[in-house]
Computed example of a mutant assay.
Amino acid sequence: MYHDTDPSIPHVRVIGGLSLHYGGRRMALPPGSHRLLAYLALHPAGVDRRSAAGVLWPTVDDARAAGNLRSALWRLQQVGCPLVRAEQTTLGIREVVETDLARFESWAGRVLSGSATPEDLAVDPGSIADLELLPGWYDDWVLTVRERLHLRRVHALEELSLLLRRSGRPSAAVEAVHVAVQAEPLRESGQRALIEAHQAAGNWAVARQQFDAFRRILRREIGVEPSAELTAVATAPRRRLAVPLPRQGR
């Protein structure tokens, strides 16, 4: 999802790891500035300076935390491109700065609101499969956003599959929702979307196999059956073709 990034605009990546890109190259981040940049990228609306200091340096007193924040901010200001909007009581990423998290959120928002563009529908689901936020970071403020990103990704892929199916692209719909099902195999909404996409593609036997596999997983993992609604969808008789197939010659 990075191919059309304007190199003249600072771009902060937090998906797959923290990095800064500007002028067509990756910029070196000064030691001691990484956590502040990541925190601001995850909170694009801005943060209270005192709260940010307490979250980022929770094991020291307020005065020391405030000093650490000022030091990290000074280091970020030496990078060579405009990154941080610093005011007396608040901090934030400058509006000119792009983040991959914001780009994903914008894409997901359009898909989920029904305002997706043709370009949005053409996104490669594989590029969304491994959107792990700041891998190796285990701060509470990272884990909270990471879980939200995971759920939003799954929900958006399910909706993308529905939009693709409605636009007459069932194979692409299968590919999109398959990524969601791999991420959340016990989520029934994803399983239903995958089964319906297989049916739309004419693969009714595969759809039934998917349902049977899901039913086995549910029984084994949590001891329940699929809902009556999903069962009805998966076991519905195959629809007849509107135009009969030509007879084969003997």
Score class of each variant (00 low, 15 high):
2 Y>V: 14
3 H>A: 15
5 T>P: 02
7 P>G: 05
8 S>W: 07
9 I>Y: 02
10 P>L: 02
12 V>L: 12
15 I>S: 00
15 I>W: 01
16 G>A: 04
16 G>V: 07
17 G>T: 05
17 G>K: 06
19 S>M: 08
20 L>K: 05
20 L>A: 08
22 Y>Q: 12
23 G>S: 11
24 G>Q: 13
25 R>A: 12
27 M>Q: 13
28 A>E: 15
29 L>D: 05
29 L>E: 07
30 P>G: 04
31 P>A: 10
33 S>I: 02
41 A>K: 04
43 H>G: 03
43 H>D: 08
45 A>W: 02
45 A>E: 14
47 V>Y: 00
48 D>H: 05
49 R>I: 01
52 A>D: 00
53 A>Y: 00
54 G>D: 00
54 G>M: 00
55 V>S: 00
56 L>F: 03
56 L>Q: 02
57 W>M: 03
59 T>W: 07
61 D>F: 03
63 A>Q: 09
64 R>V: 14
67 G>T: 04
69 L>V: 12
71 S>E: 14
71 S>N: 10
71 S>K: 13
72 A>F: 11
73 L>W: 07
75 R>A: 15
75 R>G: 08
76 L>R: 05
76 L>C: 10
78 Q>W: 10
79 V>H: 04
81 C>T: 14
81 C>P: 08
81 C>K: 06
82 P>D: 14
87 E>N: 11
91 L>H: 04
94 R>E: 12
99 T>F: 06
100 D>E: 09
100 D>F: 07
100 D>A: 08
107 W>V: 10
107 W>Y: 15
112 L>S: 08
113 S>L: 06
113 S>M: 05
113 S>Y: 03
116 A>Q: 00
118 P>E: 07
121 L>Y: 06
126 G>P: 04
127 S>T: 15
128 I>D: 02
128 I>F: 11
131 L>H: 11
133 L>T: 07
134 L>R: 03
135 P>D: 06
135 P>S: 03
139 D>A: 09
139 D>F: 02
141 W>Q: 00
149 L>K: 06
149 L>T: 10
151 L>Y: 12
155 H>C: 10
155 H>R: 15
158 E>K: 11
160 L>E: 01
163 L>D: 03
165 R>G: 06
165 R>V: 01
165 R>D: 05
166 R>L: 13
167 S>R: 15
167 S>H: 13
170 P>A: 04
171 S>T: 14
172 A>H: 09
174 V>C: 13
183 A>P: 00
186 L>N: 01
188 E>G: 03
188 E>V: 02
191 Q>K: 11
192 R>W: 06
193 A>R: 12
196 E>C: 13
199 Q>S: 13
203 N>G: 08
206 V>C: 01
209 Q>F: 02
209 Q>D: 11
210 Q>F: 02
210 Q>N: 09
211 F>R: 01
215 R>T: 12
215 R>V: 06
216 R>G: 10
217 I>E: 11
218 L>R: 05
218 L>S: 01
219 R>I: 07
223 G>R: 03
226 P>M: 03
228 A>T: 14
230 L>P: 06
232 A>H: 10
233 V>T: 11
233 V>H: 10
236 A>V: 14
239 R>H: 12
241 L>C: 13
244 P>Q: 13
245 L>F: 11
245 L>I: 10
248 Q>I: 15
249 G>W: 14
